[in-house]
């Protein structure tokens, strides 16, 4: 028997006796999310090439105001509040995305799944399971500065409105110059709203609001109420919430890229309109 002097457990940051590649997951998820943030920020500041009739990029929907002089912009008639105002500061591009992205962004920022991964990847509390967390003088969790996470259900309400708006965009993507048809862009937009719906309607807060908040699903009359079947359906989606979070996020980025490329004339959109 050979003996070596050491401590049972180290308290140093990121110390662990794990022998697997525990750092890959926080690195990969953190990097993947950063890529999305960089792309959407870049796309938001472009303020153009977000529309290729009849497709509207989801990052720019709804078009609250439009600068019709920008290349690849949506028709002025589709703006909710008309043309871009003259008082808008010059250092900010007249981008409809700047006005709308805060909605879906707040939903993802306060999402229980996203919280899990960014607390691990960016705040190292902890970086991975059984890996020593970043030492904090007085850890407060979500009780002080992070109390804002409790607005998640209100962000959910906003996200549901976005789903409705994006569904209308898909409907419009079937019509070009008043003529019914289908293009690759229509399919891309349709998949986008489908994936976003799977993510949004699998939300933990929605699961609670629709049925989880009750202690008894059938105490009133012995029959299961509507909330129970809704709760079951949301639970089904919720079991794969992480999967839907990632695929929907990636597809939103791809949808914007597709519309942008078609709008710039770099990619050709195959469709039944033949132009």
């Amino acid at each position: 028997m050979k003996e070596t002097q050491t401590q049972a457990h180290s308290t140093n940051f990121a110390s662990t006796n794990r022998t697997d590649l525990w750092w890959i997951e926080p690195m990969a998820t953190g990097f993947g999310f950063l890529c999305f943030v960089v792309y959407t920020t870049w796309a938001m500041f472009q303020a153009g090439y977000y529309y290729a009739a009849p497709y509207l990029s989801p990052l720019y929907s709804p078009t609250l105001m439009i600068d019709p002089t920008a290349a690849g912009s949506a028709p002025l008639g589709t703006a909710w509040f008309g043309a871009w105002p003259g008082w808008w500061p010059k250092f900010l591009p007249p981008s409809p995305a700047m006005l709308v992205l805060i909605g879906p962004l707040s939903f993802r920022l306060t999402c229980y799944y996203y919280r899990k991964f960014y607390y691990r990847s960016f705040f190292a509390t902890p970086p991975a399971c059984a890996v020593t967390a970043l030492p904090q003088k007085d850890y407060k969790g979500e009780t002080h500065l992070l109390l804002f996470q409790n607005i998640h259900r209100y962000c959910l309400y906003i996200a549901i409105v976005y789903i409705l708006i994006l569904t209308c965009d898909v409907f419009r993507a079937f019509f070009k110059d008043g003529q019914f048809g289908v293009g690759v862009g229509t399919v891309v937009l349709y998949i986008n709203v489908l994936l976003l719906s799977k993510y949004t309607f699998g939300c933990h807060a929605l699961r609670h609001l629709l049925g989880g908040r009750t202690d008894c699903f059938s105490c009133a009359n012995g029959k299961e109420h509507l909330g129970y079947s809704l709760w079951q359906k949301v639970t089904h989606l919720n079991e794969n919430h992480m999967f839907w979070a990632w695929v929907s996020m990636i597809w939103v980025g791809f949808t914007d890229l597709y519309v942008r490329m078609v709008s710039m004339g770099i990619w050709h959109d195959f469709n039944t309109w033949r132009h």
Partner: peptide, 10 residues
């Protein structure tokens, strides 16, 4: 202390 849990799911 429910607020101290930061949902890292370990």
């Amino acid at each position: 202390g429910s607020g101290l849990c930061n949902i890292t799911k370990c």
